[in-house]
């Protein structure tokens, strides 16, 4: 019955699902190191899915994107984050504002919303992997959820980067890649962003003796 979906699309679907699963795993994760590892794994999956798209469509610039993803998101950024965590001696626990099961339920609701929103677009898609757009949006929203529910700086940043992963999935799988210049620019921005954040972490820790964002609730309108 599913014979109409070519094998490559099945693979992309599989990778997309794994990315979604990893997004949930990150949402549920309680340990900072494991969170970073999950992020690296998501980057790796993203790289594989990009590679499948590249092989299927024969677009050479997607090979570059895949390589860039592997280098940046699966290796470099996790390495930087690992170093930061060790240098800053961050406490291992990730603290959440809402308890994790509740976060998961909200997450499911977000996935449903994302799927609903992208449904009409997926039907228009000419690419072989049309369902992935919904998954990409869902991953973005889950990462967003992670950013709002976490109280520590590093999980928030991982959320920020995971959001970028979701966007990248949308760019590669749903539209077969943005123009190369744009992808390079995005990669550069992400890298600079992380470096700036690294600098920032030290500043925050020096000021507050902790990376808990809850210290930073002084600025309010009253």
């Amino acid at each position: 019955m599913n014979a109409a979906i070519p094998f490559s699309a099945q693979l992309i679907n599989l990778f997309a699902s794994v990315i979604l699963l990893l997004a949930f795993a990150m949402l549920a994760q309680r340990r900072v190191m494991a969170l970073v590892n999950l992020f690296a794994l998501q980057g790796l999956t993203l790289c594989l899915s990009t590679l499948v798209v590249a092989v299927t469509t024969g677009q050479t610039h997607l090979y570059w994107s895949a390589g860039l993803t592997l280098l940046l998101k699966a290796l470099l950024l996790p390495w930087i984050l690992h170093r930061l965590i060790r240098r800053l001696q961050v406490k291992w626990e990730v603290e959440s504002l809402i308890n994790i099961p509740a976060t998961m339920l909200v997450g499911i609701a977000l996935v449903i919303i994302a799927f609903n929103v992208t449904q009409p677009i997926s039907e228009l898609s000419s690419t072989i992997s049309r369902g992935t757009l919904g998954i990409a949006l869902a991953s973005v929203m889950l990462a967003f959820l992670m950013m709002i529910t976490r109280t520590k700086a590093i999980p928030q940043v991982v959320g920020f980067l995971a959001m970028e992963n979701g966007l990248f999935l949308a760019a590669t799988s749903a539209t077969y890649g943005m123009p190369m210049v744009v992808e390079l620019g995005i990669a550069l921005d992400v890298l600079i962003g992380v470096i700036i954040l690294g600098v920032f972490f030290f500043q925050i820790r020096d000021q507050f003796d902790s990376l808990d964002i809850r210290h930073m609730e002084k600025l309010k309108d009253n």
Binding site: M147, Q156, F160, I196, L197, M216
Partner: peptide, 21 residues
């Protein structure tokens, strides 16, 4: 580098990061 300015910058980065995403 005051606590308040760090807080403001963090908020700026995260909110605009989300927005820009």
């Amino acid at each position: 580098r005051t606590p308040a300015s760090l807080e403001a910058a963090w908020k700026y980065f995260i909110l605009c990061g989300v927005g820009i995403a």
